[in-house]
Design a protein around this nucleic acid. Structure first.
Lengths: 139, 139, 139, 139
DNA sequence: GTGGTCTAGACCACT
DNA sequence: GTGGTCTAGACCACC
């Protein structure tokens, strides 16, 4: 978990590791945090730092390449492909599926809307502060 | 979906059949459409009408029983369990893990906190309305 | 090499096994030889009969699913997806890349056009006869 | 592609750089654009002007030498090798494996023999014309 | 029974 | 050094 971690994985998560990597890279590119032309960690490097099998990383990278997010360069590290940064509104929409899911849960728990929203604001605030304060603290 | 269908399944859906059933029952109970003490179709009956393997139904029912939504009665159909409401605060905490996850995504997308929270309120409102409107809750 | 072999692989080929399988299935579907709804061999079965690792088959099937050629059915064999048979002209176009490649070779060998075309006709005729005569003799 | 460029490479191409170089030289020789005895750029020069690793150029040149297209001369630039034409029949046979492969594809697509052969003739004609236009006309 | 994911480790092609 | 392909074999989720 170095300060400049490229991505982070949650071993206990429901969705597979390669998917987590795929999603995170896609999001970072959309947010403009990873810029076109920028080199990404090699399959072996990332596999090493995440303590994961190289093939798992390779699978994520391949999917990202197929979807036009990454570009392969034979014998050299892969790079972020042409401009794909999204305007604010579009980036917000990327969050919708996750929000729908959590909204569903909230309703199943019979929680009141205002209560849920306020709690979310709190959680989000805490998390933002943690990030802002001590350099980087992902995961 | 005929008027009397207990639940409906979407064969092409991403999530497994047993999950679809689980979710629908849970939602109908939360919405008050299925009331405590009410009998539900037997495993065999439902399996027959949905053209699904009985084990799949059984799995959904077992999960619902484990989560206190259904009650088993030897030799007789299962029934919706009694209301075991929890204090608000406790139920809210149940939502935290999901909120943390979506907060993480929001930060990775570099969205502003206020913007995200407002969008969540919107999504939550839409979803609540959809549930409130047509009593019935298709997937 | 049973008479009803689903696909065949050339171990010495330039392109990877999973690609060979992908291409053959795609072609057979385009040709209407494999029809929508039709079941295909399971990953394990095909892996066994081709003496190949299951993951190799899985990779081919996954790609075919992603491209809409196959449809997954949880717990059951995959099937050919909705209608995709192509009219003659389009099918012919599918052959173009291969023809371009061989045309290139022909020119590099300084062969005369007519000579090459006639030779191709011969080869094609022989192969068609072999197929027509002794049931099936692929590979 | 400047007028005096020996070869050009497409970095985004599917096939490797060394192959692109190999093919272009072979083609130019076949087309008579490069004549026996003519000197070609040194490995270092070409590597510099193409901004490619010298080893890549070296690999292409070695393959060309191995196939009798180039001739090495100690301490001096390599030259195009003398013409070693082969009888027509023999060269035709060199094309058989490729033709067999494409014949296989044609049959899998259930295309009629005549249709396929005619289409091949068309493709071959187009390609010959494209090559012929530039300078010398291959038979 | 079905397919999916992951690990461990080998080999290859390309730069 | 880079990524790609394949094998061997384990474990999981779903029907």
């Amino acid at each position: 978990m170095s300060g400049s971690s490229f991505v982070s994985i949650a071993t206990g998560s429901i969705d597979p590791i390669y998917r987590q990597i795929y999603d995170q890279v896609r999001r970072k590119v959309a947010a403009g945090e990873l810029l076109p032309g920028q080199e990404i960690p090699s399959v072996r490097d990332l596999a090493g730092s995440l303590a994961v099998h190289p093939m798992t990383i390779s699978k994520a990278y391949s999917a990202l390449e197929k979807d036009g997010v990454l570009q392969r360069r034979r014998g050299r590290p892969m790079v972020i492909a042409g401009d794909q940064a999204q305007p604010d509104g579009k980036r917000l929409e990327l969050l919708r599926p996750s929000l729908e899911r959590v909204a569903e849960e909230s309703l199943q728990l019979r929680l009141r809307t205002r209560q849920t929203v306020q709690f979310f604001a709190t959680v989000l605030g805490e998390r933002a502060q943690r990030l802002g304060a001590g350099s980087t603290t992902p995961s």
